[in-house]
Design a protein around this nucleic acid. Structure first.
Lengths: 198, 198, 198, 198
DNA sequence: ACTTAACCGAGACGGTACGTCGCGTCTTTTT
DNA sequence: AAAAAGACGCGACGTACCGTCTCGGTTAAGT
């Protein structure tokens, strides 16, 4: 993307890039829409001239891609003795990230405007949703292989059931002061045991 | 809101109201944002003059409230012999409504812009989310009372787990060609039995 | 240019047109350049929204054409008993119009930027310069026919000599408090008699 | 303006100065306005970096003063046996300089924007207009003293009449292929003899 | 030969102005 | 009185340009 060697001229101020990305996260976090935002608004919030932003990103889409990169931290290693423990750890990570209001606002905004930003939506799925889902699937499959989980279940459905509470809270917005590990454990316990009276 | 007595003059064309609401649903269904929409755009799509819209609704918010009413059909009666059958029927209704792309786009849009439309968001919760949730809670409580469901479970958490697959599909958008009753049954079966190998 | 019949809709405010043209004359009269002016500046000066101006004139050129029309008054009838009296009357009219600072500033500005506004420059010549010149030529030719002016002179050159003082003042800008008829008479007397000592 | 002593360092490229001045003359010659020009545009045309220009001239005005100097050649010595011959020679010089399109464009541009560049306009008058006019006046006065020109004429008016054709052509721009001396002689002959039939 | 200081080109920066667009309102004719 | 058409003022947007600033790289006088 960048020219291999820069021969002359003043260098771009690297603080401008992070200020812009922070500004987007702030604005989206406080209710702004992806299509409603403009580079002008972002520039004002970032304390940077419009010019500097347009010099870096031709369109909002390109900027948003960089914002997406900024909030896309890789999943940590979650190896535990049992699949149950791994699932608890995995869900705890997801809950924790949902607690980050700016990041989850960004994802929620992106979800609502998927049609307007197809390329962005695609990368959101490829780089965030799919890895999380795959990680979950593998844990469940390992649990099956270890005889810990029933082999006749639908792996995808189990995953959806497990993340249900997280998605529900993401919608409600009521994720304040909620302990990730404890919440995670209650979900896994419930799904492991089922609700049927014996 | 309406004048007590109408003295004379041409009467309002009732088709204008439904055309406007349909236009909003179409536009939001194809990716528009609530704050991004304008009465001008809606009027164009509805094939109506701006004036006629402003005569009916002073602001977008008021129009959106009517749109919300339009998609808010009351839940049908779900009494069945067992709680399991009732849950299956209940989830099937939710899934079916999720299949309506325009309605679910509207809810998704509303979710993303809760901050910008507080009154709208409140009514969304009071009139759509809460009734659905309460209906689910009552079914579960009846199941407990009947000895069909374990009494030590967290009712709210069970509900969240049950709607998990629906929320997950709502995010992915992949709700095409999916049989409501069958899917619903698979979810309930899974949550009833749990995943743990016996 | 205009649609033959206007069926509905608010009418354009005719005061806007004259306000814009007056604004241009004011601004050019106080030193502005044709290319330097913008519709924004003109709108501000005219006390009108940019929108209303762009609705009437797509480009500056089109507006300037209307400005040119506004200052282009037809020459009055100048029939007098002798060619000398006619020339005096003709020059007096030209001097009088040169005294109108706004009009002459406009022409001077147009002269300096002929290259940038070719169409405008063409119409300036066709509608202002040429008629004035032709009127002068005819007076001189009538003078020749009447035996009042020597038949061996170059008509065009005589005209240029006569307007010399006017052009010189137009350059200097020093046209304050100068009586048109008296000045005109002195010029014609000088050119009639010549400067050579007898 | 320059530092008293230059200790070391690279020297300014003298070609930059002339390139800039040539660029201004080119640009103005092809229709540019003094206020419309920018050092950026000039730098591009001159093939020089903006920096080099700003290092030499703080503002456009200062650069324009140097441009004015560049086109301001002193009047040659015009002593001839008779005033008539001197006038012919004088007018011929003026015509010749009017044929230089770049120089006369510069003067025309300056004329149109006198208000915006007062200092420049003043120097234009002091250094170009006034000397030419004074030279003409002196020739005419010498003609009067020698009994060659009638003593009762208005010297200034005679000068204005003489330069009339030049000013007229300057306006029309039609100065192509026109012999200075021959044209000059025709003007002087006309003004000497007058147009009145004897 | 080495130092050093100014010049040079390239390009990022903040600021400003432009033409465009879309909004909600207002005005006029028609139904 | 409602509807349709369209002009209006206002404000925001993306662009373009200006003059300044900040870089490596270059050049040439002085040690």
């Amino acid at each position: 993307m960048q020219p291999a060697v820069r021969l002359a001229g003043r260098r771009r101020d690297p603080r401008t890039d992070v200020a812009a990305i922070e500004a987007v996260l702030d604005l989206v976090g406080s209710g702004a829409t992806l299509s409603g935002l403009s580079l002008v608004t972002i520039a004002d919030r970032a304390g940077v001239s419009r010019n500097s932003l347009y010099r870096r990103w031709k369109t909002k889409d390109e900027l948003y891609l960089d914002v997406l990169d900024a909030i896309n931290k890789p999943l940590p290693d979650l190896r535990r003795p049992t699949a149950r423990d791994e699932l608890i750890a995995h869900l705890a990570v997801l809950i924790e990230r949902t607690l980050d209001n700016r990041a989850s606002s960004m994802l929620r905004a992106l979800l609502a405007e998927a049609a307007a930003f197809p390329e962005l939506h695609r990368r959101y799925f490829d780089e965030i949703v799919t890895p999380r889902r795959e990680a979950s699937y593998q844990i469940i499959r390992r649990g099956i292989a270890a005889g810990e989980i029933r082999p006749d279940i639908d792996v995808a459905l189990v995953n959806e059931v497990l993340v249900g509470p997280i998605l529900a809270r993401l919608g409600s917005g009521g994720t304040e002061g909620l302990d990730p590990v404890q919440t995670s454990r209650r979900i896994v316990d419930l799904v492991y045991a089922g609700v049927q009276a014996s």
